[in-house]
Amino acid sequence: MSYANATLEPTKPDTDLPMLEVKDLNVYYGESHILRNVNMTVFPGKMVCLIGRNGVGKTTMLKTLMGILKPRSGNLKLDGHSIIARTTDQRARLGIGYVPQGREVIPRLTIKENLILGLEALPERPKKQEIPEEIFELFPVLKTMLSRMGGDLSGGQQQQLAIARALMGRPRLLVLDEPTEGIQPSIVLEIEAAVRRIIETTGISVLLVEQHLHFVRQADWYYAMQKGSMVASGPTSQLSNDVIQQFLAV
């Protein structure tokens, strides 16, 4: 069931350990079987996109990765180490930056406080709690409204805040769940550009769940999910119209 390992990138040496490895994951909500033997690999410095129609279990997969949901069986490895026994906050501190579907900005905290909370994921808390200038270069809107409440922002602004917050913890793996859902096209382009720049400048790995074809095409590799199983994968350059028709709600 392992799609990628050997063939992923001809340019990558075989010794390169995957940043994230998902093995035979089975997740249930009560008695309903949501994820069935899911396998997936993300290599360092790569952007991987997970596609699939509504309700197939993409968010469930990411929540399991974060430890919000407990899998019934299977394993998760980050940089070679199993994280299955770690709690959610430990996983964050191991370097997974999570931007959930629905953004989950803390509503009654200011933008600045929301960003400062992103520092919690650093293994050692810096003495000075300042927001690095790079964050504002990526998302200039945030700079002008640091003292506004997180809950008062528009959806697009909240999305940018959520991504910025995840970046504050300097993650090794950035996990984005539909970052462009319900956002106007111009902001979508901004977010896309920001993610691209993040990858170029920091070299971190990205796991993205996305419906916009344009954004999906930016990834190196795709996985397609159907009814809780991985049914296709490959380089995004080879994304055929068939696959797009079948797995993207375009």
Binding site: M66, G67, I68, T87, T88, D89, A92, R93, Y98, P100, E104, I106, P107, R108, L109, E113, L117, G118, E120, A121, L122, R165, G169
Partner: peptide, 14 residues
């Protein structure tokens, strides 16, 4: 304050 408002997301932040 963060945990009071959103426990799950607070945990996800570390």
């Amino acid at each position: 304050r963060a945990v009071t408002q959103n426990r799950t997301m607070s945990a996800c932040l570390g």
